[in-house]
């Protein structure tokens, strides 16, 4: 973490989505606080936490949002997706149904999120080897076909959690920094009408300057 919380070059909002009980909240707490809680509460409102990482010598502050996975909550999540530049779409490798629902979550993203959102498919609970119901190759192929990056993680034993977040944040960073070279700031992207543009510009001087891409 290493840097002061209010000093950063980029602020990226990333949302965690996926069925109820796949481990979204524990991925969040593992990444931001290095904690795992077997006795965690089901998420009902909207929660978020932040952590800063370094990519190419730049400080990237990740603001990770977490919400309830149950279907009916999707009616109230448009505010949740607003400004998100990345999404971790999580399923449980030991529950096939949570994997089958990935397509529905992709549709949800298409309807509510920015069309350029970077999506990573995450098979969580990889520690449950003997209970595996979703073969790694199957998910990998699915991810390739849908142009998603893919990783398997375990929030419980920490496997790949750091890598998953590092990868998606790096990917977002690459896209954003390249876009700045390619496009002048006013040449903005064509976006669906129901989302606000993502505003990620490097700060001139990282000293206590805040960027509010989450709004």
């Amino acid at each position: 973490m290493g840097t002061r919380d209010d000093e950063y070059d980029y602020l990226f909002k990333v949302v965690l989505i996926g069925d109820s009980g796949v481990g979204k909240s524990n991925l969040l707490s593992r990444f931001t606080r290095n904690e795992f809680n077997l006795e965690s509460k089901s998420t009902i409102g909207v929660e978020f936490a932040t952590r800063s990482i370094q990519v190419d010598g730049k400080t990237i502050k990740a603001q990770i949002w977490d919400t309830a996975g149950q279907e009916r909550y999707r009616a109230i999540t448009s505010a949740y997706y607003r400004g998100a530049v990345g999404a971790l779409l999580v399923y449980d490798i030991a529950k096939h149904l949570t994997y089958e629902n990935v397509e529905r979550w992709l549709r949800e993203l298409r309807d509510h999120a920015d069309q350029n959102i970077v999506i990573m498919l995450v098979g969580n609970k990889s520690d449950l080897r003997h209970l595996r119901a979703v073969p790694t190759d199957e998910a990998k192929t699915f991810a390739e076909r849908n142009s998603l990056s893919f990783i398997e993680t375990s929030a419980l034993d920490s496997t790949n959690v750091e890598t998953a977040f590092q990868n998606i944040l790096t990917e977002i960073y690459r896209i954003v920094s390249q876009k700045q070279i390619r496009d002048p700031p006013e040449g903005d992207l064509i976006r669906p009408q129901n989302v606000e543009p993502i505003d990620v510009k490097p700060t001139v001087n990282s000293d206590s300057v805040r960027k509010q891409c989450c709004q």
Partner: peptide
């Protein structure tokens, strides 16, 4: 800050 009520009152009211 464009904070919609749903972002803070959901858990308060639902529970």
């Amino acid at each position: 800050q464009k904070i919609e009520p749903i972002l803070y009152m959901t858990e308060w009211f639902l529970c």
